Computed example of a mutant assay.
Amino acid sequence: MRPETIHIERTYPITADKLWQALTNQESMKDWFFEIPNFTTEVGGEFEFYKSNDDKNLMHHCQVVESKAPEIFKFTWRHPKQSQGTSVITWRLIPRRGATTLHLTHEGLENFKDAGENYTHAKFESGWERILGESLNKFLEKRSLPI
């Protein structure tokens, strides 16, 4: 089985510190990502959240692997009710002269083969494109976060 990985880069016109806050603050995350009541950036810490899909509550279970503000946030990503597989997501923030590039890597998608058609590389990629290209962008524009 060959590894399946997604790489997406988006550059936002704010500092790495401000982007880190948008990415890791529970209140902010509700507006662009998901509501995650037990969210943490502590290495070894676990959090979970739910997404409704066709009247099913799909649980996402995550564990923090690496966290260094405002540079990197890495965590496992599992769907324990749909699959035995685990993937790893890395958000890397790269400062760029008054802006910050977010490089998202989602590795191990081949581990979700047992979960069905909603867990394909294409579905995950379109989801991340929508989240980073639309939801996070709109949130940052709305907040007009100064550099």
Rank of each mutant, 00 (worst) to 15 (best):
Pro3Ser: 15
Trp91Val: 03
Glu134Gly: 01
Gly98Met: 12
Ile94Gly: 00
Glu71Leu: 12
Gln21Ile: 01
Asp55Thr: 02
Glu4Met: 12
Phe39Trp: 09
Pro70Phe: 05
Pro13Cys: 11
Tyr50Phe: 14
His106Arg: 01
Ala99Val: 02
Tyr12Lys: 06
Arg97Cys: 12
Phe124Arg: 02
Gln82Glu: 15
Glu42His: 09
Trp77Lys: 07
Thr15Lys: 11
Ile8Thr: 02
Phe139Met: 10
Gln21Arg: 11
Gln26Asn: 07
Ala69Gln: 06
Leu93Tyr: 06
Phe112Glu: 07
Pro80Met: 01
Ser67Trp: 10
Ala99Glu: 13
Thr105Val: 09
Phe39Lys: 08
Pro13Ile: 00
Met59Glu: 14
Gly98His: 06
Ser28Lys: 05
Phe34Lys: 06
Gln63Tyr: 03
Phe33Ser: 01
Asn38Ala: 04
Gln63Glu: 13
Gln21Leu: 05
Phe124Ser: 04
Glu48Lys: 13
Arg78His: 12
Glu48Ile: 09
Asn118Thr: 10
Leu23Gly: 01
Pro70Ile: 00
Asp31His: 13
His106Ala: 08
Glu42Gln: 15
His121Ser: 06
Gln63Arg: 15
Thr41Ser: 04
Gly98Thr: 00
Thr24His: 11
Gln26Ser: 06
Ile147Gly: 03
Thr101Gln: 12
Tyr119Asn: 02
Gln82Ala: 14
Ile147Arg: 03
Pro70Ala: 06
Ser52Val: 07
Ile89Arg: 00
His61Ala: 14
